[in-house]
Design a protein around this nucleic acid. Structure first.
Lengths: 229, 229
DNA sequence: TCAAAAGTGTTCACCGTACACCCATGG
DNA sequence: CCATGGGTGTACGGTGAACACTTTTGA
């Protein structure tokens, strides 16, 4: 006996992306103003529908590329949402992904084309459907992941100062951190390269720039090291 | 302009369940022998297809009830799998859930009806499709969740001994724990009720039975308590 | 010379971990 | 009376948290 797949229901499957950025002070998300019904004119996550020949990860990447012009970014599947009436237009499921991008890489022109705007996560408007729930789940996941794996660097320029890194973690965790303790901990991990260069934009003295040493990190991983912030 | 949902592809969506149980020594999963093609005769997780009028959680519960006769169990959505050719029969996505059940509650007759069998997670056979990946993801999630939230009790009878609880955590975390440290830590959490009853089945002296105090736990939660094992 | 941010170590409290002996009971 | 598992406390080291002053330099 062969299972008769044809007798089963098929569903519409959306993919929605929570796109995080960091602007030196605050954690931000990129939202678009919807230009079609239902809920036209309201703010929403970026999304699209899964195509038949496509895996979910590919769909998420396609949507992100389309909207931001950026490729090869850190993404993680978050959760699948399926309440019957979550989209009043039609029964639709949605698989949420979150992405971490460097705001500076982001193509400003596309923002205008799609009426997209960056919002601080604490001041973001209310969103359509269940998108608010998606965002808060994404923040939780990001908090967990960022204290367990070195993904924070995805939100910073290649070269960054200790102060920027600290501000980033403060924004992600939503709590103040002690400067000395933070630096001690980061240095203890021994996964950064200290450059000779200084960034003079933020102070008269200037502060040293660092880079994440991916190679060193993966070597340490193999030797049982585990990132903990 | 109204969005034209009709032009988008629809997909078949399966729900597969990783069902965990605990038999006093080992962590186990419930598997079924497939009686239809493709992959007839091979071991697999239990699954079914999402219906149009159904949310994912409901589908997962339906499948679990159908196969085990148990309702109202702890379940958590795990991840959605979408590789194009994951099911050679037809393009299908699958949303995986894991469930924790008390083995003793489980209806033995249904096991025969569906050719289902309990396997220790360390000795389980190789499974169809991407089900092995689902299982290993489920174990990881269970480990994390069980050290963060008091879900271990879902796998034990209502009344249990400290020794049983310790063995359970040893099975989940796959490491030996020190008896005194374990008990100290659990007692420190102060979320168990010590009963006057003893379980005499495991020793001549007998060991005290405990119950999880859900009410106390949720009170403590509200006061900022957090479970950490 | 002063304002503004960068950089730098130490102390203390608490938690996690290691560890060994007596107790109660049924056979 | 003895074999079997149940039950109990302490000491130590390491980690996380609190905390303040000096340095640099451009304006």
């Amino acid at each position: 006996m062969i299972y008769n797949y044809e007798s089963e229901d098929k569903v519409l499957l959306a993919v929605d992306c929570i796109i995080f950025g960091f602007d030196a002070e605050e954690l931000k998300i990129l939202l678009i103003k919807r230009d079609f019904e239902p809920e036209k004119g309201k703010w929403s996550l970026m999304g699209g529908f899964l195509k038949n020949h496509e895996a979910l990860d590919d769909a998420a990447n396609r949507i992100l590329l389309h909207l931001t012009g950026i490729n090869n970014v850190y993404m993680e599947q978050l959760y699948s949402f399926s309440k019957i009436d979550r989209d009043p237009g039609q029964r639709t499921l949605s698989v949420a992904y979150y992405a971490l991008i460097k705001i500076e890489d982001h193509n400003e022109e596309l923002n205008q084309q799609y009426a997209a705007e960056w919002f601080s996560v604490s001041e973001a408007p209310s969103l359509i459907f269940d998108h608010n729930i998606m965002v808060s789940r994404a923040i939780n996941r990001l908090r967990y992941r960022a204290s367990t794996e070195p993904i924070g660097f995805e939100l910073l320029p290649k070269k960054f100062t200790m102060r920027q890194l600290q501000k980033l973690y403060e924004a992600i965790l939503d709590e103040k951190l002690d400067k000395r303790n933070f630096i001690n901990k980061i240095n203890g991990l021994d996964i950064l390269i200290k450059l000779d260069e200084k960034d003079k934009s933020s102070s008269r003295k200037g502060s040293f720039l660092y880079m994440f040493d991916e190679e060193k990190y993966s070597n340490k991983l193999e030797q049982g090291f585990s990132f903990k912030l």
